[in-house]
């Protein structure tokens, strides 16, 4: 079970090699809502190694998206630290790409413009940016849709565009907030396999938020469980020793998958219940 075949750091990671891509250290997040303090995340300690695929699983409202926003630099922790490749994060995380849960494409840009924009704003010439965007759209299976506008696409196609939009900038860290949440079951599996394909070609550190334990196990190297909010915290951390490459529809039929699932779920049920009663007692 502990024999995780972690692919390890990329050889070309330079001075940051060996340091975790993302490190939450006693991170706490509290908001003030209508003069009432509200603790979203009590404490989070978590490391994501270079090239590692980590999923955060938890019930709705447990603060998993909050953790992603901290890693992205969109919000700052109230206490504790967030480090990116060993350095404390100040401002936006320039090494991260973020795939949002809600629609985040620019509705007034075509599919091609949406994908190319990340390069264009980084001063890559328009011609070159669009050529590379073409390449990425082919990789996500949308080579024939470059001139469409987002509203002309299905939900799954929009997520593919989003994936290309983020990956074209070659971020070292990929943050994903229930990216396949609104999709139907079949599309989710297809998107999951597409994600694993793209990820295995050029391993990035991935922090993947979902409420779907099966999806998390099928995709990840490691699954982290969070308790129900408020005062949420990490209550479990499992390595997933399923062989890669994986096909996430086939892998769900494997014996080992069920073992892992049962093990996590048994623990998860207890902890989630405890989490609920704690929250109830304090609230």
């Amino acid at each position: 079970m502990e024999a995780l075949q972690k692919e390890g750091s990329r050889p070309d990671t330079g001075p940051a090699a060996g340091l975790p891509a993302v490190r939450f250290d006693g991170t706490r997040v509290a908001f003030v809502i209508k003069n009432n303090p509200y603790v979203a995340v009590e404490r989070a300690d978590l490391e994501v190694a270079d090239g590692e695929f980590v999923s955060i699983v938890g019930p709705t409202g447990c603060g998993k998206s909050t953790l992603l926003n901290i890693a992205a630099g969109l919000i700052t922790p109230s206490a504790g630290a967030i480090e990116i490749s060993g350095k404390p994060l100040k401002g936006l995380n320039r090494q991260a790409g973020y795939l949002f849960q809600a629609d985040s494409l620019f509705p007034w840009k075509t599919v091609l413009e949406n994908v190319a924009i990340g390069l264009e704003v980084a001063n890559v010439g328009q011609q070159a940016a669009r050529e590379r965007a073409h390449g990425w759209l082919k990789r996500v299976g949308l080579g024939a849709f470059t001139d469409r506008y987002p509203h002309m696409l299905s939900g799954g196609q929009r997520k593919r565009v989003g994936l290309a939009q983020v990956l074209i900038r070659d971020p070292k860290i990929l943050l994903m907030d229930e990216p396949f949440g609104p999709l139907d079951a079949q599309t989710r599996q297809i998107m999951g396999n597409l994600l694993l394909d793209l990820w295995s070609a050029d391993k990035k550190a991935v922090l993947f938020v979902t409420h779907d334990l099966e999806e998390a196990i099928a995709l990840s190297d490691r699954v982290v469980i969070m308790a129900a909010g408020p005062n949420s915290r990490i209550i479990g951390n499992w390595k997933i020793d399923l062989a890669r490459p994986r096909d996430i529809s086939d892998i769900r039929l494997e014996h080992r998958f069920h073992e892992i699932h049962r093990e996590i779920w048994t623990k998860l049920k207890d902890e989630v219940m405890k989490g609920y009663s704690q929250a109830g007692g304090e609230g």
Binding site: F100, D103, L105, F106, V121, V166
Partner: peptide
């Protein structure tokens, strides 16, 4: 949309 805005920021 705040999401579109956050996305634009994250895209640099």
């Amino acid at each position: 949309s705040p999401t579109v805005l956050a996305n634009a920021r994250m895209l640099g």
